[in-house]
C-alpha cells in the first residue's frame, strides 16, 4: 500500500498567544506539484517551516516519509527553499553548493558535478564563482532554489519561489519544476495563483491558520455545469455579456474583471461550447486574447459565487 509522504495530525502553532496554525490535518501522496495558498498571515510559511524542521509545532504530529522533520533520516530526501533565507556571503556559490552536496553524502567528484548541474539548470554557471553579495535579487533567489534541487530530493518545499523574479526567470523556475516533477514532489507556497494554476493539480488553502476544505468541495460537486474563461481585448462588456447569454446551453455569464468573462454552461446541452464561443467572437469581429476551460484558480478559491465578490 502506498504510504503518504506527509502526514500532519492536529497541528497547532502559536506565536506568543497568537495562533498561526489551528488543528491542521492532512496527508499528501507523492505526485504532481501541490500548491499552498492563502492570504498574508494565513500560516503558509509557518506550515512550511514546521515541515522543514525549522520550527517545532506547539502541538500535533508531523511525519515526512514516516520520520519527524529535521531528522538525519530525511537528509537528501527532503529539501526546501525557505522564505528570505540567504546564502553565506563569505563563500562562492560553487563552494556552498559543493558543501551542501557533501553533507548529502556525495563524494567530492559527485558534489562538484552536482553543484555545476544545478547552477546550469538555473542559468547561473557564469556566477558560479561569485559570492552572494554581488548577485542580483533574481540570481540570489535562483541560487537558493538551485540548492534545494541538489541530489534530486523526493520532496521539495518551496516558499514563494518566484517572488521578485522577472518573467524570464519565472519561466526558468517553472520549467525546472515541471521537468523534475516526474521524480520529485513539489509543495509550492505562492501568491501567484496563475503560476500555481499552471503547475499544480492539488491545492491546500490556508485561511487564518486553518485548512479550508468545505467551500472548495462544494464547488467540486457542481458537476452539472462547466465553465469557460474568456479573456478579450478591449470590448463592449455589456454587449458581449448580452450576446453570450443567449447562446444555446449558456447558464450564466459573469464579468469578474475588465475584459474577462466566465461562461457557465450545461455540457449536456452544448458539449462544444468553446467552438460556439469562437464562432460568436468571429461573427462580432471581437478580438480575444485567450479562451480556456474551467475557472482560474483565483476564481475557484476566492470568488466562488461567480459575481466577482469574495465569499
Amino acid at each position: 500500500m502506498k504510504s503518504p509522504i506527509i502526514q500532519c495530525q492536529q497541528l497547532n502553532h502559536v506565536y506568543s498567544d497568537k495562533p498561526a496554525l489551528c488543528n491542521v490535518n492532512f496527508e499528501l501522496d507523492a505526485g504532481d506539484p501541490i500548491g499552498l495558498v492563502g492570504p498574508n498571515g494565513a500560516g503558509k510559511t509557518t506550515l512550511l517551516s514546521i515541515l522543514s524542521g525549522f520550527l517545532r509545532p506547539t502541538s500535533g504530529t508531523v511525519r515526512l516519509f514516516g520520520h519527524p522533520p529535521g531528522t538525519a533520516q530525511l537528509n537528501g530526501k527532503v529539501s526546501a527553499l525557505p522564505q528570505d533565507a540567504r546564502l553565506d556571503p563569505s563563500f562562492t556559490l560553487t563552494e556552498q553548493l559543493f558543501f551542501y552536496a557533501r553533507l548529502q553524502g556525495m563524494t567530492g567528484q559527485q558534489a562538484t558535478l552536482e553543484a555545476s548541474r544545478v547552477l546550469e539548470e538555473f542559468a547561473l554557471k557564469d556566477a558560479a564563482h561569485e559570492k552572494p553579495p554581488v548577485l542580483s535579487h533574481g540570481m540570489a533567489k535562483r541560487a537558493a532554489i538551485a540548492q534545494a534541487l541538489i541530489g534530486n530530493p523526493s520532496l521539495v518545499l518551496l516558499d514563494e519561489p518566484t517572488a521578485g523574479l522577472d518573467p524570464v526567470n519565472v519561466r526558468t523556475v517553472r520549467a525546472v519544476i515541471a521537468e523534475q516533477s516526474s521524480t520529485t514532489t513539489f509543495i509550492i507556497s505562492s501568491h501567484d495563483l496563475t503560476e500555481l494554476d499552471r503547475l499544480c493539480r492539488q491545492i491546500l488553502l490556508l485561511e487564518n491558520g486553518s485548512l479550508q476544505t468545505e467551500k472548495i468541495r462544494t464547488d467540486e460537486q457542481q458537476t452539472a455545469s462547466r465553465f469557460i474563461t474568456l479573456q478579450m481585448e478591449a470590448c463592449p462588456a455589456l454587449e458581449v455579456i448580452a450576446k453570450l447569454k443567449v447562446l444555446y446551453g449558456v447558464l450564466q455569464v459573469t464579468n469578474p474583471q475588465k475584459n474577462e468573462f466566465i461562461v457557465e454552461y450545461n455540457p449536456d446541452l452544448q458539449p462544444n461550447m468553446d467552438q460556439q464561443l469562437m464562432q460568436t467572437i468571429h461573427t462580432n469581429h471581437w478580438q480575444y486574447r485567450q479562451l480556456s476551460h474551467g475557472k482560474s484558480l483565483e476564481e475557484k478559491l476566492f470568488f466562488r459565487d461567480g459575481n466577482g465578490t469574495k465569499n
Partner: peptide, 15 residues
C-alpha cells in the same frame, strides 16, 4: 485533507 482542482485546460486557444 487535499483539495483537488478538477481537470482544466484540456485545450487552450492562445495568441
Amino acid at each position: 485533507m487535499v483539495i483537488t482542482i478538477y481537470p482544466k485546460l484540456q485545450f487552450t486557444y492562445t495568441r
